[in-house]
Nucleic acid binder design. Structure first.
Lengths: 237, 237
DNA sequence: CGGAATCCTCTTCGATACTG
DNA sequence: CAGTATCGAAGAGGATTCCG
């Protein structure tokens, strides 16, 4: 809250427009006014995979603190970036999902992810490996030329969650949930998925080590759709 | 700083790796660990136009506070994103500039800017209009098809600063500084530049109103290279 | 004068405890 | 399950001072 607000005598404590603003007429500054606070873009990242309950978000964002998540969700809702929905019975749970404006943040999230991936290295011991993040990353690792003419869905069971990866018209769609008519189903854990996609773990080896359950040919094909993210050395200049 | 640090008894007060981390193995989270703090991406934005002195940055980021800027610059330098350089005599001033790793943040900054521009509307009364931000925005507003076969530089004098806009091979380069062999030179203020680029102010009108000094044909051509950013309604869904 | 370090106040964060 | 309440710790912002 800038000093200008005090000068105008506006307290604005509970109204719209909470949080600090840069007060710059600039797209970047405006974007950061809205989604630049801590945790916000990670919430968006998780919602890019589809609607999620409060608890799912808490689990995917260890350390956020429940009050902060509530704050962020409230703010994002008033900004028109997410929407609160109650699922139809029998589920009946309330979920949060991106609006069209929220979906439009996808490219910015992907570019940040691409940049961050350069310096990722290997997972540190105290690093969480959020499964949702891996499925978001798959959207930018996808190589359309490797999937030419292929229209298939895959269902992945990872650490107790189910994800759909749908390859269609040279595009890939990833979301959390059961796949529609999957061509193959794989069961594996997050580290193994990461090893297959990033570290070049050979699918056959992974299957032989029982780190994956599923069809060998399908798995090999599936893995081939995605680029191993090149490790760019962090050389100053 | 997460609780894990306390558990490990690590205070880490002055060492490397300052600031909070999300401790997630994810490109987005990693990027935000490094450039997600307040002001950081706006510093990067300004540096995208070329090397700048401490004081220039302070001016372009009203409200940052001198200690915070120093903190951010130090952090960015240790992370290999910017570099401190001393200009050769007679200038002799120390400047900050992006490393290759820092330049690679460009696409992420542009995407954030594009998203933020949707909800920019018109400048509010207490909005600063940072000239540097306009020249950064020009990079994403540029329409290569309108500049086919054109190789020219323009020099713009805006509010006491000089910028070069170089159109070359269907690309545009914007930076602060004198232009090399400019095809035309324009003198105008920031609001007018914004009006020409965003609000569709007619170049002839602007010239007639003496809001711009320069050659009419050149100005008309110059303006035609850039798309008026479409105002996207902020409709939830 | 440019480039910071220091001090002080205020806000935000993060963890836990608690409630509908 | 979906949040609110609370409180100590860290971060932000402004003014001032220091240094070369």
């Amino acid at each position: 809250m800038s000093s200008a607000c005090y000068i105008l005598g506006v307290s604005r404590e509970k109204g719209a427009g909470r949080g600090r603003s840069y007060h710059q007429y600039c797209g970047v500054a405006r974007a950061l006014d809205v989604v630049g606070e801590r945790w916000t873009l990670l919430i968006i990242r998780d919602l890019l995979l589809g609607p999620r309950r409060y608890k799912d978000l808490l689990e995917g964002l260890p350390g956020i603190g429940t009050n902060l998540l509530a704050d962020r969700l409230r703010e994002l809702e008033t900004r028109g970036i997410i929407r609160r929905t109650v699922l139809p019975p029998p589920a009946g749970s309330t979920v949060y999902e991106l609006t069209q404006l929220g979906e439009a943040l996808g490219p910015a999230v992907f570019e940040l992810g691409l940049w961050g991936a350069r310096t990722l290295g290997l997972p540190k011991d105290d690093d969480q490996v959020p499964t949702a993040a891996v499925f978001v990353a798959m959207r930018v690792m996808f190589k359309p030329e490797k999937a030419a003419g292929i229209n298939e869905a895959y269902e992945l069971h990872v650490d107790g969650h189910v994800f759909e990866v749908r390859v269609e018209d040279g595009q890939v769609l990833t979301r959390e949930g059961l796949a529609h008519a999957p061509a193959a189903t794989f069961t594996l854990d997050g580290r193994t998925l990461l090893a297959l996609l990033r570290e070049g773990l050979d699918p056959k080896t992974a299957l032989a080590a029982r780190r994956v359950q599923g069809n060998a040919d399908s798995l090999e094909r599936f893995v081939s759709f995605f680029a191993k993210t090149p490790e760019v050395a962090n050389t100053p200049t």
